[in-house]
Design a binder for these strands. Sequence first.
DNA 1: CGGTTTATTGATTCCCGTCAAGCAAGGTGG
DNA 2: CCACCTTGCTTGACGGGAATCAATAAACCG
Lengths: 256, 256
Amino acid sequence: MKSPRKKPLEIITTPAHLCTVELRLRLLGKLPFFADLPAEDLEAVNQKFREVGFQVEEYIYHEGDPAADLFVIAEGMVRVFQIAPSGRRVLLDILAAGDFFGNLPMLGAEEYTDTAQAQTPACVLRVGADPFQQILNQYPGVTQKVLGLVAHRLQAANERVFLLSSLPVERRIAFILLKLAGRLGQEHEVGLLIGTPLSRENLAEMAGTTPESASRVMSQFQKEGLIAAGREWVALKNPASLQALVDEEPLSGNLM
Amino acid sequence: MKSPRKKPLEIITTPAHLCTVELRLRLLGKLPFFADLPAEDLEAVNQKFREVGFQVEEYIYHEGDPAADLFVIAEGMVRVFQIAPSGRRVLLDILAAGDFFGNLPMLGAEEYTDTAQAQTPACVLRVGADPFQQILNQYPGVTQKVLGLVAHRLQAANERVFLLSSLPVERRIAFILLKLAGRLGQEHEVGLLIGTPLSRENLAEMAGTTPESASRVMSQFQKEGLIAAGREWVALKNPASLQALVDEEPLSGNLM
DNA sequence: CGGTTTATTGATTCCCGTCAAGCAAGGTGG
DNA sequence: CCACCTTGCTTGACGGGAATCAATAAACCG
């Protein structure tokens, strides 16, 4: 078997301290929920945020910590996960620039229900519960936008429940790959490259399986020419076939 | 093995057509998101809702239907689920009076992503996307309440992802039983009775397993005195032990 | 009191998790 | 630039938990 090419994935990250004011403003303006605000309001909103830089693997908050802040990613990727009593990690999501996280404190939750960790070097913006509440009070349109986003995430979470409950490992992996490619994919000579370092272990944590099983499935996919993959990277060569794999009917019992 | 008592569960449901105006007002006033509205506003809001009655097993909407309405349960129980290509059903939730459902249309979703069906005879209130949008525009406080509720559901869904990914069937069932009891439980001589008809199949659909496996686990629980159960009903006799079962550490590797 | 639906239980199969060994990639320092 | 070491990936062997298939029994309904 031929070994895949090496390191197609280049994480280009501005050093954390370069999370500049201009970057912040540009970012906030592009956030879905602030997109409609006029410039001056945007400036006011911006005042309430403070930026923080994190190195790879650095923790942003831990499950159980008092939920004091809401976060928005300016640059880099962040993973949020939970840890099972068995020690197994369950990756809830991998987030990129523009995504928010940190269990919307104002919903009444007292503490974080998950742990957030930098998947790559990252710069995130932080806002306290009170200032954020002020924003919501002042701009009802923003509240509606946030509601839409959260509802969308709820739907995604339900989709995930669905697939964990009803699909075998092979299809779960295919599903996860497609999801990630949809959000983090970038065109590349080797295929649709998933734009974050992604180990077999990460994949396993998202698909509810083990690194070994994930590896077996990935090998299989490579043999079939569906993907190209290497150490901590994956690219889709044939998304359509992967999708077909996920949707596939069990091919029986419909002939009567 | 001694057979459990029969039919502790009496579903007391007003006939669907008795979903009266008074009932509606009382109900809307008790809804978390309308709780703070003054009486006159509540009356205005009430105007926008129309009630619909459903018989057991009747479908309220199907996955893929255009998402035109938001629903609130006045009386009875409703289940929302999805259907896997394999034909397997995945029960997302069983909802009771006061709960809303129907993929908040205003989030931009074009069609329902799940199917809703009456688990018992039910009376539900329906509001179109536009009128509901008006309510949100007019009462920002309501929007925030809704946001809180959706965020809470998101958290519950994540919890579910977590348990499906990391716990064996026995614990998943225990978890589901506790969840249901928390939301639908009523004190009863046989224990904390779950207030909805609940077949082994329903349980299996929630826990991501099969009716047979669910049955085996339930038999086990009965032998251990943790629960009492019969045809389409379950009561918890020892919630604390069930909880302990869910939380249990894997009892190893901590002695050094 | 039949007929139907739901639950139970057993036998069998198999997917996948676990344990374990070996390999490839990539960074580091001489 | 190469040897070395760390870390992540692959692959095999094995075992167990749970799905599947199947038959019986109990509960409910009219």
